[in-house]
Every structure is written in structure tokens, then in C-alpha cells.
Amino acid sequence: MESVPPPAGQVDLRARVLGFVDGISRDTGYRAPEESERRTVASGVGLLLDGRLGSARERLAEADYRLRVLTDEADGRRYAEVADGAGEYVRGWGRVYVALDGPARWSVQVPHPIADLDTEQLGVDTLRGAPGGVLVLAGAHRRAGEDGEADVAHRRDTVFHEVTRELVARGLPGVQIHGFANKTVPGRHVVVSTGAGDHALPDARALADGLAAAGLDTCRAWRSRCVLEGRTNKQGRQAAEAEVPFLHLEFNRDVRAEEDLARRAVDELRHVVRRWARAGEESDAEAGAKTGAAA
């Protein structure tokens, strides 16, 4: 592993992410990336996940992306920030944050910032709550651009999707966060789904039980007919094809707007991603033991 360069300085990671998202609107730009551009960004993220920060920085620069190492003042953890250096609100390709406290174990994905208001808050708060996380954040309103080209949850030709492809190829389970208006699913706070597959079903059941115990009325898509089940979600289909766990979550406006409800939701999300982090550590330890025995 290449040595990690000294951090650029302490920041409030939550405020930094929310400040970026605050600059997004339906009027900010989006340019569909060329295949070579999205693959360059994703391969740069892959090098970062391999611990090759210098090589990652060089590869990302080929797509006018930059890599910074930041320290979150909340707890002293270090994160790599992958951000567009060519005008974030012009191309609208988004950002990636990678925890540098050890190997990446899981991802939290926010495909519709601003459009699904405050989902970015749930995303960054989940990232901060467990080791080994990767936050993949879209960089444009879902209705920016033309013909739905910025709606990354339903497209395969985006930087967002190419980065999640890199994560899925490494077996990282993911949770994707969405939001809905209260009237869309009356009486429900949350819709929990495993998307197109069922490899995260044990996690989904545990999460739904935890959310319900926390006082959030939860629709379980594997047991009941729920609206917004995310069956056509492209990242979910990608994960299903690779047999990698994927959770598709929809939160109503109350959960995203009310601090207490949001905290309860994030607490339960953190239980899930911490299990994923522990499972990754145990898998690595088992693989190491087998290698040692073979030697």
C-alpha cells in the first residue's frame, strides 16, 4: 500500500458534503460522460481502494478529477475525497468519499441529491458511523440534462454507475437512499427493499425490524406490496447479477426533515453497515489463515 499523504486539514465532513449539495439545482448543468471518461474516474477510484493513492491521483487527473485527503473534525477519521476539478456544477458527475481507516467494506449511495431532499444527510451520517465505508454521491439534479440522462439510478452510462460497478466487482455490499413525499405512501415512514435481487434479505429483515422497533412504520417489500420497491434500479440490478447484497431504501419527508426521526433511521443503518464491516474483516482473516496454512 502506498503511504497516505498528510491530510489537507480538518474539515466538518458533513458540512462539506452538504455544502457541495447545496450548489445543485435543476438549473445546474449536466454533461453525459463519454465511456472513456466514466471508466477513467472509476478506475481511479479502484486504485484508491487498492491503497495506491499516488496512482489514483494521476489516473483521476486524466478526467480532470482531484483527490484530497481530509480529516473529519468530528472524530479524527481520514477520508479521501474524489471530486470534479473541471467545474462540478457544469458536468454534474458527482463525488466519492472513501474512508481511509482500513479496507473498503461497504458503500452508501445517494443518487438523487436535492431532488430527494436531505437524503445526502442520511448518507454522510451513515458513512461517519462505521469503518470501511464509501459514499457515492451524484452531482446533478435527477431532472438536469436531457431525456433523463442525469437520473443515475436508472442509467448505466454515468460516472455514478461506473463507480458502483467498481465496488460491486470487489464484492462490496451497498445501501442506496431515496426519498418520497408523505402522500406517496400514506402512513409509512420507510420502504425497505432488496431491489432486483434477494442477497441482502437477512440484512433487510434485520433493518426493517430495527426501524420498526425505533418507531418508524416500515413497508417490507419482500412480504407486502409496497410502492417504490426499486426493482428496476440499475445499481440494484447490477448487484443482483453479481450476487452482491444491495438494499434500496425510501424514506418519507418526515424522516428526512425531523432530526429525531433521521437519527433513529441512521442508527439502524449503522447497525447494518457495521455488520458488513465485521463480515469483511472476518472474511479477510479467514482467507489469511488459509494462506498461512497453505504456506
Rank of each mutant, 00 (worst) to 15 (best):
A144K: 09
G145C: 12
H161A: 11
G187E: 08
V190D: 00
R143A: 15
E146T: 14
A138W: 09
E162R: 00
A169Y: 05
D147K: 14
V134S: 03
D157L: 10
A144Q: 14
G179P: 06
V192F: 03
A169H: 09
N182S: 13
V192I: 10
A169W: 05
R128M: 03
R165S: 15
G174P: 02
H178W: 04
D151A: 03
H154P: 09
R155V: 11
V190I: 10
A169Q: 13
V163G: 00
R188M: 13
R142D: 00
V191D: 01
G133D: 00
V175C: 08
A138G: 02
L167C: 10
V168M: 06
F180Q: 06
L167K: 00
A153F: 06
V192K: 05
V185N: 05
G132P: 06
G187T: 08
R142P: 02
G171K: 04
V134H: 11
V163Q: 05
R155K: 15
K183L: 13
D157C: 02
L135A: 01
P173K: 07
L137D: 05
G133T: 07
F180Y: 15
V136T: 00
V192L: 07
R170A: 02
D147N: 15
L135P: 00
G145E: 11
D147W: 10
G148P: 05
V175L: 15
P131M: 09
A138D: 03
Q176Y: 03
V185P: 00
V136C: 00
E166G: 06
D151G: 01
R128Y: 05
V163F: 05
L127P: 02
G139P: 08
V159E: 04
V191P: 01
H154F: 13
H161I: 00
E166W: 07
R128Q: 08
G129T: 04
A169L: 08
A144F: 10
G132I: 02
V168D: 08
V192Y: 05
A144P: 13
E149N: 08
G174W: 06
G139N: 12
H141L: 12
V134K: 03
L135R: 01
A144R: 12
G139I: 13
H154I: 12
G171Q: 11
N182G: 15
A130S: 11
T184E: 14
A169K: 10
D147R: 14
A150C: 09
V190L: 12
R165H: 11
G171N: 08
H141D: 15
L172F: 10
A130G: 03
V190K: 12
E162T: 02
H161G: 00
A144S: 15
H189Q: 07
E162C: 01
V159H: 04
D151H: 09
G179C: 13
R142K: 14
Q176R: 02
H161L: 01
H178D: 03
V191Q: 04
E162V: 03
G139W: 14
K183T: 11
G139T: 15
A181P: 06
E149I: 13
G174M: 13
R165F: 08
G132C: 06
F160H: 08
R155C: 12
D147F: 12
G145S: 12
G174Q: 13
R155L: 14
L137V: 05
H178F: 02
H154V: 13
A140T: 15
G129F: 01
G132M: 04
E166S: 07
G133N: 04
A138C: 06
G145K: 13
R156F: 09
G174A: 14
A169C: 03
